[in-house]
Structures are given as structure tokens and as C-alpha cells.
Design a protein around this nucleic acid. Sequence first.
DNA 1: TCAATCCGTATC
DNA 2: ATACGGATTGAC
Length: 686
Amino acid sequence: MTPSRHTDRRPADGSPVARVCVDVPLAHLDRPFDYLVPAELAATAVPGTRVKVRFAGQLVDGWLLERTERSGHAGRLAYLEKLVSPEPVLAPEIARLARAVADRYAGSLADVLRLAVPPRHARVEKETTPEEPTPDDVPPDDVPGDDVPADAPRPARIPSPTTGVPDPPTGADGWGAYPAGPGFLRALADGRAPRAVWSALPGEDWPARVAEAAVATVRGGRGVVAVVADARDLDRLDAALTGALGPDRHVRLSAALGPARRYRAFLAARRGRVPVVIGTRAAMFAPVERLGLVAIWDDGDDLHAEPRAPYPHAREVLLTRAQLGGAAALVGGHARTAEAQLLVETGWAREVVPERATVRARTPAVAPTGDDPQLARDPGAATARLPSLAWTTARDALRADAPVLVQVPRRGYLPSVSCADCRAPARCPHCAGPLALPSARGTPVCRWCGRVSAAYACPECGGRRLRAAVVGARRTAEELGRAFPGVPVRTSGREEVLTRVPGGAGLVVATPGAEPVADGGFGAVLLLDSWALLTRADLRAGEEALRRWLTAAALARPATAGGRVVVVADGGLAPVQALLRWDPAWFAARELAERRELGFPPAVRMASVTGTAPAVAELLAEARLPEQAEVLGPVPADDDRERMLIRVPRSRAAALAEALHVAAGVRAARKAADPVRVQVDPLELF
DNA sequence: TCAATCCGTATC
DNA sequence: ATACGGATTGAC
């Protein structure tokens, strides 16, 4: 680049101005900047391309958002320095979506674009051109191998001659088991935009159902984005889609693919070569032509929350896409989140649920049992410290040559404080935050507002004594093998996740989210140590416990085929009740009502501001918060930082996000030191 | 009186 | 971030 070349440059004849989003992380620079398009880039510097521009003296990356005739900028415009690639990787609708997501989460467009478009891989980009597809676009190692469950792919159907896309199934199975299901599929095929909150039946082959919804949408000439929580779910969905749609009508997109394969899959979608993109949350921004359906499975799984700024949640991103693009939406799971319930109650989405008779026919028999581990009469139970009902249930299943699933929680859940008498979580009388005991014999202190509750009395039972929950009962799992000598014990957890186990007698000990599918279903499912799940210091503890139980219990055979579930928990607790009755909608409605009462999300919009105490104070002093905003805290966060919570009515959500974004910008412009993290809808509230 | 430096502000 | 401008300070 010689200096003389600069003097040669002249602006392009048509639309000489490029509006560019510069890739800098500073909040106050979150707006487009205008540059001149040099004549030689007139045809190639199109909207959606990556460019390099000189910005404040340095060369930075940017996104060309649009080309215009004139600029509103009073000063002199600089030229685009370079076109990184002529590939318009940023589709216009994704640019719009990214802006909406940035606004919702008090973040910058550049931050969201970094999440939305994978890093360029030049070699991959050159492999193919939009005109000549190659068969190598989905490489062999993108396709799941032999370890993928055999049940997941549907048998290939004869493609209909006109479209090449098979007909959806009919009858009382599949979507036919849900009264609103067939109508939902019809609407997808007809090009309409139905929105569904789907409560999947136990034993449901959910990957097949999602694949059928995708097929219906593709039949209607539209595209699909479907997001699942982890690699194992993705393998299952991939296999189902391969069966339903063939091997080359979809791509999988996840960060785990690595840069080259990820960019290859991304390009295939962007170039309109495949109508369906499936993936983990990395796929939530995937460009798809004529988007007709967004789907998310198990939206309560916290893996759906993006850990990088501005921390968007896959469900919210997908619903925003559906809203902006007039696409259908499918929010499915065995459980139902309070957020999904809100969609139903506001009328934004409709329920797709089975009738009670169908539920009864498909559910295993669920029974609660106390968590007293003394059971001397059964020596095996005593060894494993199992309640006797759990032990006898497992024993019976094993005798019937059926596999048994034992769910144990992961370690690391923070105990909170509960009433020693009735075990109701202890909440701050002032702000309803969680109480904690700073020392064993101290007075409880609110973790949100810091107020001391010296005279705490349980609102449920009037009890005045408090107890801290005890964590860690993994030993129970290790001792199980000894309780059932001669029975093979396999574990599935963080280190090694089993996808599938054979149908004979055997024990599988799994942590939540790592439960394998069993051939023919599990004869028994034991849900142990639920006390640790239910007493987590988390707003979503009950919802999360039920989600994990339903997900595990859904792997059991129906009661009619001998399937039994034992949950070691007090049968009077609401999540346990919901499990016994297999009624996730009832629990979600109850949960949402409670959150309305307490002023918690999603009934209200919350944001958190985390940083050093002076930095947090400065940001909040700067922020012009909406009038109804309530500021809670400070609560201590990691390494001498602190956290403030701001809550507003949902109608003020946009104003809150904007106020925080502007305040962060003012701070960044002034000093740039002492970072503050702003999070809208933080997953963890305390 | 001029230049070196500091601080604040814009970055096209 | 960096780079520029206006104000400020200090030495001639």
C-alpha cells in the first residue's frame, strides 16, 4: 500500500457511501459510520461484506451495512481501506435481527455480529462458488457416525415426485398425539406462521417430531433454524433429519465443529444451498433463506444462554427472529419454562399439548419417597443409602431384565437457607431475595439487599429455625454397584456422556443432562438427592428440578409396560406434584404466577450491573433509568466486585436496556477503565 | 511569546 | 484504543 495510491482513489459512481459498523467494543461507538466506496470496489463492496476501514487512526474490521447516495456526516469521509472478501456473509435480515438483539440486551451491534457470523476461513470460502455446489459441502465427519442412536433416524420415505420432500405422517402417533399438532404442521406447510409451546409426551421421539415440523416447513418452500442444547441432542436431531429429509438438505452448525467446518456449514446456509440449519446456540443466528420456522428444544437448559456479551438467550433470539421475519415458532420440551408459559398466557403462542388420557397412557408410574436413608431391613438399600422404595423399584426392574437409570445431581450447587421445619426457602421479607447464613450461628442476611433478618419467621409455617442444605451425595452413586452385585454399572456424566444403552438389566448412573436413551426405555428411573436440586440458591430451582426430573423420567417405559419412577422428595412440594401428575403446564402457570407476585422475571424485566463498587455506582448514577425502576442490592459478587439488580415492568424493558447501554457508553467514552458488566435477563439472579 | 504537555472529546 | 484540539503551564 503506497501513499500515492490514495491520491488515485475516486468514489464509486452509484451509491458511493457505505454505512459501516466498526468492530470496536466501545458502547458509545455503537452506530454506523460513513465511508466512501472507491470506484474499483463499486460492484463488490455490497451490503453484508466484511471491510477494513481506518477508524481513529487505526485499521479496524467492519461490516458494510448498506450503500447510500449521500451521507449525513458533515465532515470529510474516509475511503474504505479494503474489502476483506466479496462474500456478503451478513444477510440483511440477520443485520436487523442483530440490532434488535443488541437493543434488547443493552449491548452493541458489533458484539452481536461477532456471535452471529463465524470467523472467516479463506480456504473454505474458495472451495466453492455460489454457482457450483460441490458434494463435499457436508464433509463425512460432519455426519454422525455409528454411535448415533438407531431409533432416531426415521425410515426413509418415498419422496413425493413434485417436491422431493416426503409427506408428514398422519394418525394418532407422532404429532397426531397432540390435538393441535396436525394443524400446526399443516400451517407450516401452508406457509403460515403458527407459534407453539409444545409439551412433549414421555417417551416422545422428539427429534423425529422436530424433523417432521422441519419437513412440513420445507414442503411449503421455506427454511428452518432449529436449536438444541448440547452435542448429544444435536446428534439425535441430525440423525432424524437425515432420515426425514435426506443427507444434504440440512447442515449442522455448532462451535464444536472447529473454524473450517463451521464456516463451511455457515456458507452453505448463507448461499441458500440448504433450507435447514440445526445446531447448538451457535446456530441461533444462522442465515436461512425465506425463514419459515424457528425451533428450540428444551429451552430451560441453561446451555441456551450465551456466555459472551451481550449474553443473549437462544430462545429470545429465535422468538425475535420469528417476530421480525413472520416465521413460525416451536418451543418444545418435556418441561415448560415460565418464559414459555408467558408466551401462552399473553397469547403470543398456542399450546400444543397431549390430552390427559394420552398422558396417562404414556407416563410411567411415578412415586415419591422420603429421603431417610436408614433402611436396615434391606441390606442392599442400606449399603447404597437408598430409600427402600427406590431400592425395591430398581431391584424389580433389574429382575425383569430392564435397565435402570439413576439420576444424581452434579456437585457444586450452592446451598441456600430454608425453614428447618417445613423446608420452604427462606426469603427476605423486604425484597424477597434469598437469605443466607454468613456464619453457622449468625443471623440471616439477604443476598440481594443486604438487610439482616434477625427475627425471621417462615411465612409458610411460622417456624423460626433455619437450616442450610447439604450438598454432595455422589457417593450414593458409587455405592449403588455394591447394592446390586453382578449388575453392570455404567456412568454418564461430564467426562463421558453415553448416548444410548442396551435394553437388558443394567444400572446407569447419570448426572442431569447426560442421561442416555435405553433400547425399549428404562424399566425404572430413580431421581436421587433431589433435596440438593430443590434447595439451590436460585430463582429457578423448582423449575430446574422439575425439568431435570421430567427429562429423565421421559426415558422410562409407560406404566402399562412396567415403567416406574421414584423421586426422593416430599410429595407435597409443587415440582414433585407436577412430576407425579405429569403436568408441566400446571407447574409453569403456578411458577409464573408466583414470579408475578414476587416481582421476578419473566413477569418483570431484570438487569444486573457487576463491577467494582465505585464503577457500578458511577454507571447507575449516569443511567437515566425509567421511572418505575427499582434498584436492588448491592450483593457481593466474585473477587471484591459487587452486583446491583435493576427491575422494571416489562413495558419499560426497552427503556431500561437503552438507559444502561447509554450509561455504559458515557462511561466508556470518559475513562474506559474499570469495566462494568451489564446483563439483561441474567440467568443467575443471586 | 512560543512550545511542550495535559485533558477532554470524537472517532466517518 | 488513538489522535486531535484547545487550554494550560513553563521557560525564554
